[in-house]
Design a protein around this nucleic acid. Sequence first.
DNA 1: ATTTGCTGAATGAACGTTCATTCTTTGGCA
DNA 2: TGCCAAAGAATGAACGTTCATTCAGCAAAT
Lengths: 205, 205
Amino acid sequence: MAVVSPVPLADQRSAEILDSARRAFAEKGFDGASMQDIARQAGMSVGNFYRYFPSKSAIVEALIALDMAEMEQDFATILAHPNPILALRETIERKITEADCQGDGQIWAEITAASLRKPEIGDATLRMEVGIVAHLTTIFALAAGVAKEEAQTRWTAHAHLIVMLVKACAMQHPDNPITADLTRLVMRNINQTLDDIATSAALKG
Amino acid sequence: MAVVSPVPLADQRSAEILDSARRAFAEKGFDGASMQDIARQAGMSVGNFYRYFPSKSAIVEALIALDMAEMEQDFATILAHPNPILALRETIERKITEADCQGDGQIWAEITAASLRKPEIGDATLRMEVGIVAHLTTIFALAAGVAKEEAQTRWTAHAHLIVMLVKACAMQHPDNPITADLTRLVMRNINQTLDDIATSAALKG
DNA sequence: ATTTGCTGAATGAACGTTCATTCTTTGGCA
DNA sequence: TGCCAAAGAATGAACGTTCATTCAGCAAAT
């Protein structure tokens, strides 16, 4: 009786509100966007907004938590794929090329700046990054046919590099005329790295 | 009578103030740092601060202009070096490894976020990036022994990639335990790219 | 006495947050 | 069906705070 749908209505509404808040933050920044801005973006009054989130910083926390959840979802899909390394390649390519139309890059830039400024946010994003890297090395282990632990010791830095590249691409200035060439070059680098890892089992074993 | 020294005293004082403003922005962000914070950091009253900069946004603009000037200075030094590509390698390595003790990375993160948000700042940083890329391709042309124009058409994207990597490294979370390995890997990638460019003349010509 | 360099209180706008109030929906009773 | 209270959603003015910016005034130097 508790819930019929796996996502309760209140949470669904919260997700919609969160999405509009993300847009407001992308437009004006975490500090720059006022509660009035955020509420207007969500199509409601400020007062009503506080019925969903108790404070402005709670929105930021919820936003980061949502991104983390989406990331977990992405990796779950990749690991369930018959060819995980191929699925990873495609996911990365999608993230890099579409870049979610400047929205994601903007938010990531805001979070990156906030991470270096506020230790609490920095810790959260560091945890998120470490989690992603752990997923990546797991996939690497699968692709290279080695134990998870070995993949971790050998390719943790490579995983971090890939994360860094994807983030950096998303944060590129959209008006930069060279962006298309650049993303192609980055994608080539990443594919090269993935190839090296996938074929390294032959060299080692 | 106007000025004796090429750097007038007022400008020197302005530079000191700008440096403390940079620290304030690094601690609290562009929007988060108040004029009171900035003035206190500079060891003076708010009122006096306005004698040096007419507004808060003027500080940001001056900060970006200063970074641009420093960048120009760096490239002038590199180009004057007997072996420019070696000098470039060392400059990049210095920028990446020391990362100016989290101060520069913090400010770059702030600027990156602001660039995606405010078109005026975005244009300024894009101009700066294009300028850096132009300098890089000039050095590439020297190293590979080809014309500037050819270097430009062939390696503009590579130059952008290097800029992206240096920035991304500086913006890494300082508490990340993997950072040392990561920067080593990035440096290896950059050196590989520079090697490819330097030896490509043999392939082409 | 006048200029200069500087202070920090004053100012009005805008901020995050609260809350008294008003709409909208609901559900039992006729 | 129509009606009416009770509950839930939503509003926007108001509050205290903080912001960027200004300026009357002070102390030393000329």
